[in-house]
Amino acid sequence: MSQMWTAKLRNKWQKELPIEKLLPDDQPAYVSSWIYVFGVLTLATLAVIIFSGIILAFQGPAWYHISKTGKFVNSLHFWSVQLFFVFMVIHLWGKFWMAAWRGNRFATWATGAVAFIASIATAFTGYLVQTNFDSQWISFEAKDGFNSVGVGAWFNVTNLGQMLLLHVAFLPAILGVLTVVHVLMVRKRGVVPPIDSEPSPVNEASK
């Protein structure tokens, strides 16, 4: 029984990330700064982006040109993306100055950094599928960069169909998986302790 892959996976999961770690109701006392808010704000904004993006996907890329409701939903998508990057960049800088990779948290940092890069790619393709002058201009200008290093041979920014599919399917899937793995790693490893902190009788006694 214990040789079953399913049983092995379950046992490993339960050992590494029990439900108490996944949904804890307490945190170390040092988790007391506004900087911690920006991680959850980034996640919340991502939810709004996905919500507004799904509505836009159902109606098609040209809907918002001709519908007031469409324009409003497009605006929700536009501004949530702007807020998403503001929150994420603050979160990223915060984690840098906290040296949040300490204590075997390299993978947590790396998945966050790759998610940041994936977010840029996702947003970029979003600008390409606006089906307006901006997307005409960006695709014409951006093609030279991608073509210059051979990437344009497969990633054709002037191909609306390709960019639309990447924007609504492939890239969000990558970003979604990275985000889930990143959050699970945060829960598994816990929030990095302060720089210069150390075990002390005060800590132990005050628990």
Binding site: L23, P24, D25, D26, Q27, P28, A29, V31, S32, V37, V40, L43, A44, R102, G103, N104, R105, R189, G190, V191, V192, P193, S197, E198, P199, S200, N203, E204, S206, K207
Partner: peptide
């Protein structure tokens, strides 16, 4: 590095992450 990696054994506080989210 060992201390940074180990589960926090110091003072904790109530923290409702679902409510925060």
């Amino acid at each position: 590095a060992e201390f940074d990696a180990a589960p926090w054994a110091g003072k904790t506080k109530r923290y409702d992450i679902v409510k925060e989210g």
